[in-house]
Lab assay of single mutants.
Amino acid sequence: QEELVKAFKALLKEEKFSSQGEIVAALQEQGFDNINQSKVSRMLTKFGAVRTRNAKMEMVYCLPAELGV
């Protein structure tokens, strides 16, 4: 569980995922086979993730800066 949270936060820091499906796929690539869209959705809510525009003006998920991840 701890490893999943770390990987999840690291992915969001990249600010390149525009959908929950993309986050699920990226986590599965890292070996988290039991991850699915509903789990990702709950984690996004739990950590207060928001959708914002990145440098390329794409809408992407990211974590609020005050979490200091």
Rank of each mutant, 00 (worst) to 15 (best):
K13W: 10
L12A: 01
T45L: 13
K56N: 13
R53F: 11
I35F: 03
L63T: 02
E14D: 07
S41C: 05
K9R: 11
A7N: 03
L11M: 09
S19A: 07
Q30K: 10
K16F: 05
F8W: 01
R42H: 13
E29P: 01
G48F: 04
V5H: 13
T45R: 15
L11S: 02
K13F: 09
V40T: 02
R53Y: 13
M43Q: 01
E22G: 08
L4H: 01
A25W: 09
A26E: 07
E22M: 10
K39P: 01
K46N: 10
A7P: 00
Q28N: 08
V5A: 10
K46C: 07
E15F: 07
G48R: 08
D33I: 14
M43W: 07
S18H: 11
M59H: 05
R42S: 12
N34K: 11
M43L: 13
N54H: 03
I35V: 12
C62L: 07
G48W: 03
S38Q: 13
L44W: 01
I35S: 02
Q37M: 12
C62T: 15
K39C: 08
L11P: 00
V69A: 13
K13S: 10
E14G: 06
G21A: 14
F47M: 09
L12T: 01
L67S: 14
E29N: 10
L12V: 04
E22H: 07
A65T: 11
I35H: 01
V69Q: 14
V60E: 02
L44S: 01
V60C: 02
R42I: 12
K56D: 11
L12K: 00
R42Y: 14
G48M: 05
F17D: 01
K9S: 05
Q1C: 15
K6Q: 11
K46V: 11
R53S: 07
L4K: 01
Q1V: 11
E2M: 13
N54G: 05
M59S: 05
E2G: 11
S38F: 13
Q1G: 11
V69K: 09
T45M: 11
A26P: 00
A10T: 08
Q30N: 05
E2C: 15
V69H: 11
Q20V: 15
Q20A: 14
A55R: 07
A49C: 04
Q37K: 15
V69G: 14
M59D: 06
N54D: 03
V50W: 05
L4I: 07
L27R: 00
L12E: 00
N54Y: 03
K16Q: 07
G68T: 08
D33P: 14
Q20K: 15
R53I: 13
Q30V: 07
Q37R: 15
Q30D: 04
R53G: 04
V24S: 05
L11N: 01
M43I: 03
E2H: 12
L4E: 04
Q28D: 03
F8T: 03
E29Y: 09
E22F: 04
L67P: 15
T52E: 07
T52R: 15
A26C: 04
L11T: 03
G21N: 13
V50C: 13
V69M: 09
R42F: 13
E15R: 07
N54R: 03
R42Q: 14
R53V: 13
V5K: 08
K9Y: 14
S38M: 13
F17T: 04
F17E: 01
V40F: 02
G21R: 14
V24T: 07
G68L: 08
I23G: 01
S18R: 15
Q37L: 13
A25C: 07
F8S: 00
M57Y: 10
V5F: 15
D33A: 14
Q20D: 07
R42L: 13
N36T: 14
G31N: 03
M43H: 01
T45N: 11
K9E: 07
E66S: 09
N36Y: 05
A25T: 10
A10V: 07
P64K: 05
L11G: 01
M57G: 15
L27E: 00
Q30L: 14
E15A: 14
L44R: 01
A49L: 02
T45E: 13
K56H: 10
N34Q: 10
V50Q: 09
E14K: 08
A26Q: 07
V40Q: 00
M43F: 06
A49G: 04
L67N: 13
R51D: 02
S41D: 13
I23A: 01
A25D: 08
F47G: 02
G68Q: 12
G31F: 03
K13T: 08
I35K: 00
K56F: 10
V40R: 00
F17S: 04
A7V: 09
K39I: 14
V24Q: 05
Y61M: 02
E2N: 11
R42A: 14
V69T: 14
S18C: 04
E3P: 10
A10K: 09
G31K: 03
K16S: 08
R51L: 15
N36E: 06
V5N: 12
I35G: 01
K46E: 15
T52A: 14
L11R: 02
E15G: 08
L4M: 07
A55N: 10
N34P: 04
V5M: 13
L11F: 05
V60R: 03
G21V: 12
Q28L: 12
K46H: 13
E29G: 10
K16H: 06
V24W: 04
R42D: 14
K39R: 11
E2K: 10
G48A: 05
L27F: 01
A10H: 08
K16P: 05
E3R: 09
V40A: 02
G21I: 12
R51E: 04
A55S: 13
M57L: 11
L67T: 15
A7M: 06
V50E: 06
N34S: 12
S38K: 13
G68C: 06
S41M: 11
C62M: 13
F8H: 00
A55L: 07
N36P: 05
Q30T: 04
F32T: 00
K16W: 04
E3S: 13
V60Y: 04
E66I: 07
G68P: 15
M57A: 10
A25K: 13
Q28R: 15
M59Y: 14
L63D: 03
L4D: 01
Q37C: 06
M59E: 08
V24Y: 05
V60K: 03
A26W: 08
E58D: 07
E58Q: 13
M43N: 00
E66T: 06
E3T: 11
V5E: 15
L4A: 03
V24L: 11
V50Y: 11
L67D: 15
I35C: 02
K46F: 15
F8C: 15
V50I: 13
F17W: 08
A26G: 03
K9L: 15
E22Y: 04
G68V: 10
E3F: 11
A65R: 09
S18Y: 06
L12I: 06
E3Y: 10
V60A: 04
M43Y: 05
Y61C: 01
S41P: 00
K46Q: 15
E15S: 08
C62P: 01
I23R: 00
F8E: 00
Q30A: 11
G68A: 08
E22W: 03
G31Y: 02
Y61E: 01
S38H: 13
A26R: 07
Y61V: 02
V24M: 08
V69N: 15
V69C: 09
A49R: 03
P64N: 05
M59P: 04
K56Q: 12
L44A: 02
Q30P: 00
L11H: 02
G48V: 03
